[in-house]
Nucleic acid binder design. Structure first.
Lengths: 347, 347
DNA sequence: ACCGGCATTGTGAACGTTCACGACATTGTG
DNA sequence: CACAATGTCGTGAACGTTCACAATGCCGGT
């Protein structure tokens, strides 16, 4: 915890370049910040000195006095997963495009204490705002207090209270995938879900249920994995063992598990899509090269990042009568892992 | 570029809690920093006030005066790829474990200007050090000037001068994979490489050449992709069309391309591994569920992150007579995408 | 009673900026 | 020639800490 002393040799300051130019630090400050009222000759002179000396503004000092920051915080969980890591990358991109830097705070686990620690850390650094991607649904109402009067936005997360956020219509997207199978003629559609503690898992599962209900179909069997290919493989093996005759198609909560599922079918001598159709979720880059190429749902993470950042900005500009909520709609991408049901399928 | 004003309401300061406790700000500072010489009664009293008021130290101020920072910078490129994103995650993890935060600077492209900008930004924030993952081999000797007397470490990158770094033995690992095939009995081994501008691509390609040379085998044909599955697919199609008879095994520069390659073989009626063996590189989580499960080389990104951070620390502690260089060795993981050569293979 | 030593607390300065002013020189206008 | 207006620049204070040091109180020993 104790941080080693960093004996950084004294950096160039405003005063250094001022001295060299024979002006006051204030004048230098002015040209750094592009203030208008400084003679062109001196501006040029100072600019040159800045370059020669390699002056870099000290953000800590600037920030201390100006009380405004150009850093935003990002708290995430499960960054080794595709979705979270994509969000991370895209937020950074959006921030950079807007001239901001991002400071990361990864969570080892999602609980109130860890979150509080992360938020506190970020606040200590006086970030201008915090973006949070908290994919697990736990009671986060403490955040409401913690973040009062503090710009923050929920990224595809449910905090248990209305908060500025950007939400992905996971349920709708999942319905879309299910409907695709229904339109193909499937009537018995199974589901391979992820732990419902995950918001995305719950919503996607719900979307499957919704689509079935809307079509007056009863839900097929389901199994549960943990997002990984292995778990998808094993869960599907179970599904095959216990419910083989009860479904002709399988909707899977993410592409990795879908990959595992396909392997499970294959090893059981069940052909995809001839015998059973499979659709996934996420459209990871490899999905197009699964065998068969996976039909799946593509999420627009770039939009999540940009909208999330924009959501912060609207809070800064103060035009916040009510928490702004953005939504982004996934799209279905059709490939070859699903086809019409065959007579070999369910009895 | 112009940042919006963030009217953050005045935060709790040392003085606020000092006033409430009837002590001086210094005493409060002492208990915050865990200094020993403060009476237990007052310590408790202050701790309580800190908690009640929700005091958070202002890092900007702390940092300004103490001239030491608890933030490290990380500049990376190509974060949508598996390797770079893994590095990103693991560096953050290692930093957090050591009580540090990481500020991120992603590069849109790898050139001197972009790098200079990123480094300057990070320096402006007075980071305690910078970790750089610059996977492209361009002339980076300007960094030597830019970073003089500044703690930084190269992550699996070659800066063109000796720098503190953690290097992955990509070449050795690639030789390992190739030797595996040689030991299986293959004599004609092709390679599917990535653009040699990438350090990892060049080293892995070199490793293949080295292994072949050591075994007195002449290099088989090779093709080039761009790390993606699509490119691997197309490059392999080319390989099949032009050199089908010239190889019984294929070493691929990463798993994604290997996936594409496998599909290409399959679509061409060539069985893996019966007709041609394939080994990949990276061991992405999905690799075990490819069809067939992919034999590949696993990199230890956790080690890269930790060692990289440790490398920074040794620089802080000043015991740097010469740039410390850490190395990490990948391991080969055997699965089912490679077997002995068949008579159906090369003539 | 005095002094040294220890434990505890306070004081002043400094870090490198920005902000709100004020100062000075120059120009235009009556 | 006076005066205001403008353009250009400098000054002092403040931001919230830490650091080095000084100050205070109390205790025990001589």
């Amino acid at each position: 915890m104790k941080s080693p002393r960093v004996e950084q040799q004294r950096a160039i300051t405003l005063n250094d370049v001022a001295a060299r130019c024979g002006v006051s630090y204030q004048t230098v400050s002015r040209v750094i910040n592009g203030a208008p009222d400084v003679a062109n000759a001196t501006r040029l002179r100072i600019l040159k000195a800045v370059n020669d000396l390699g002056y870099r503004p000290n953000m800590a000092a600037r920030h201390l006095v100006s009380r405004r920051s150009t850093v935003v915080g990002l708290v995430t969980f499960g960054t080794s997963l595709y979705g979270p890591s994509q969000i991370m990358i895209n937020v950074e991109e959006a921030a950079k495009a807007a001239g901001y830097s991002v400071m990361f705070a990864g969570l080892k686990q999602v609980n109130v204490e860890e979150i509080r620690r992360a938020v506190n850390k970020l606040c200590a650094y006086q970030v201008a705002g915090i973006l949070m991607h908290l994919p697990l649904e736990i009671d986060l109402r403490i955040l409401q207090e913690l973040c009062r009067d503090f710009p923050f936005v929920a990224l595809d997360s449910d905090f248990g209270f209305v908060a500025p956020s950007v939400l992905v219509h996971q349920d709708r997207a999942s319905s879309m995938a299910t409907n695709y199978l229904i339109n193909l003629g499937h009537r018995e559609i199974a589901y391979l879900r992820a732990p419902l503690l995950w918001r995305a898992a719950r919503l996607r599962y719900q979307g499957w249920l919704d689509a079935l209900k809307a079509a007056r179909l009863s839900p097929g069997p389901f199994a549960e994995g943990d997002w990984t290919s292995v778990s998808g493989f094993e869960a599907t093996l179970d599904l095959i063992k216990n419910h083989r005759k009860e479904f002709t198609a399988l909707v899977v909560a993410n592409d990795q598990m879908a990959l595992g599922a396909i392997r499970a079918f294959e090893e059981s001598g069940i052909r995809v899509p001839a015998d059973v159709s499979v659709v996934g979720f996420d459209d990871i880059p490899e999905a197009a090269f699964f065998r068969p190429p996976l039909s799946t749902v593509k999420q627009d993470f770039t939009a999540v990042g940009q909208l999330g950042f924009q959501c912060l900005i609207t809070q800064w500009t103060g035009a916040s009568v009510s928490p702004k909520i953005y939504t982004v709609n996934p799209t279905f991408v059709e490939r070859y892992s699903a086809s019409g049901p065959s007579r070999h399928g369910a009895k």
